[in-house]
């Protein structure tokens, strides 16, 4: 068990963060806090991708994905992190902030229409209409 956690700590951390993010989305009454929970969930997923890309040999970490400027195809013995998951996460972060902004605009709109950000109050107000 300890050995499992020691070698897969990034994934274990990701599961815990996923849980916390999910808890915020479910349990928080305030809509802004729900959105923070979505953000937290997102960063956990990013952590997963980054941890997948990471590489080390005999406990020594490799390098960042910057290949030296040689035309010699010696890349076989380059120990570098995989660039592909990094690219996916990179675009996902920017899309994530755009998503957050749209959500926040919706929250501002909801507050203007109903005068509350609390989920239970909002449900009552909607039921009264």
């Amino acid at each position: 068990m300890i050995e499992l956690l020691a070698t897969r700590y990034a994934y274990a951390l990701m599961f815990v963060l996923l849980g916390i993010g999910l808890y915020m989305v479910i349990a928080s009454e305030n809509l802004v806090k729900k959105l923070i929970g979505v953000n937290l969930f997102q960063t956990a997923i990013f952590l997963f991708f980054v941890a997948v890309a990471y590489v080390e040999v005999d406990g020594e970490p490799g390098g960042s994905p910057v290949v030296p400027a040689t035309t010699e195809p010696a890349a076989g013995d380059l120990i570098l992190a995989s660039p592909l998951p990094h690219v996916i996460v990179l675009t996902a972060i920017v899309v994530g902030i755009a998503l957050t902004a749209v959500g926040l605009a919706l929250i501002v709109r909801i507050h203007a229409e109903y005068g509350t950000l609390r989920e239970d109050t909002l449900r009552e107000v909607r039921a009264d209409e």
Binding site: A98, L104, V108, R109, A112, E113
Partner: peptide, 19 residues
């Protein structure tokens, strides 16, 4: 695109919604 969208989102959120 990224610089422009960051500024856009900021100004739009700062302007808020006028019912």
């Amino acid at each position: 695109i990224v610089a422009g969208v960051v500024i856009t989102l900021f100004f739009a959120t700062a302007a808020g919604f006028t019912p």
